[in-house]
Structures are given as structure tokens and as C-alpha cells.
Amino acid sequence: MTNHMDQLDEPLHFGRALMSWILPGLGQCMAGHRRRGIFAMIAILGMFFCGLLIGGVDSVDRKEDPLWFYAQAAAGPIAFAADWANSGLLKTGRVGELVESPPSNPRAAPTMVSTFKTVTVANEVGILYCALAGLMNVVVVLDALKRPSALAQGGWKGS
């Protein structure tokens, strides 16, 4: 009980939490928990990169998949960079070609889509990878927010 109350009294480290959002695990490294931060960084960035590799940058789409993007955005600026690559390169036709897509509504005007756009299982798995990377980064950010520095825990342990 005493330990629980002590944990509640611990200060919140908003700067470290912000750093962990910008680069997953950086907040833990700043607090002296270098190994912990590096493990988190490898896991989050690895999952996000694997998602892009599996599903392509089309896996991150702020306009077409906004709910998924809310989760993906928690992985940090890398999600916004992927969305920019999708909307700025693929959707404008600067990379690949734009082709006419049959509209779902016969009265609506046909839309132009990139030849790189897909609706395969791989794309869905890529979306899932990036979203779970973001959700796990929420855990990492919350950990950076609450975790005391290594010095406060009794000196540098390299953990």
C-alpha cells in the first residue's frame, strides 16, 4: 500500500513522454534506462517498418482510414511521414500512375486511384502492423511518463 501511494506521488515526466512519442524509447534512454529504451525502439520501429514493407505506404492513410490513422499516429512523426508519402507521392501520381476507378455509386463521378493502391490481405496486415506499433507506443509513452530516472532508483544500472 505504501509503495502504491509512493508511486502515485511520483512526478510525471512530460518531456520524456514527448520524446518517446517523437522517437519511441527515447524518453527511457533520457531517464537512464538505455537498454529498455533501445528494446522499445527496436520493437516499435520494427513493427511500423514491417507494416510498410508488407502493405506499402498505402497502409497509412489519414483521409481514407482515419480511425486506423489515430492508432498509427501514436507511433510518432514516422506515421505522418508515411501518410505524406502516400498522399503526396502515390495519390498525386508523382510515383506510379493514376487510373480511373469505377465509382461505388453509379451517379457519382469516377475517382482516380494510384496503380500502387491495393485492397489485398497484405495491405490489411500492413495497416494492422502500423496500428499496433502505434498502440504499443502509447504503452511506451505512458512508461516514460511515470518511470523514475535510473539515478533516482539507486544509480545507473544500464537497464
Binding site: 527511457q28 516499435i44 514491417c50 496486415v125 502492423y129 499496433l132 504499443m136 511506451v140 537497464s159
Partner: peptide, 21 residues
């Protein structure tokens, strides 16, 4: 493809959850 995903989640979870590494 779920296998590497679970591995990534496990690494992130264990890195933040455990008191000792």
C-alpha cells in the same frame, strides 16, 4: 505474418512492464 507481430508486441511489453531486464 502474425508471428513477427506478436514478437514485436512482446518486446515492447516486456521492455516497459518488467522491473528488471
Amino acid at each position: 505474418l502474425m508471428l513477427p507481430l506478436v514478437l514485436g508486441i512482446s518486446i515492447a511489453y516486456r521492455a516497459t512492464h518488467d522491473e528488471s531486464l
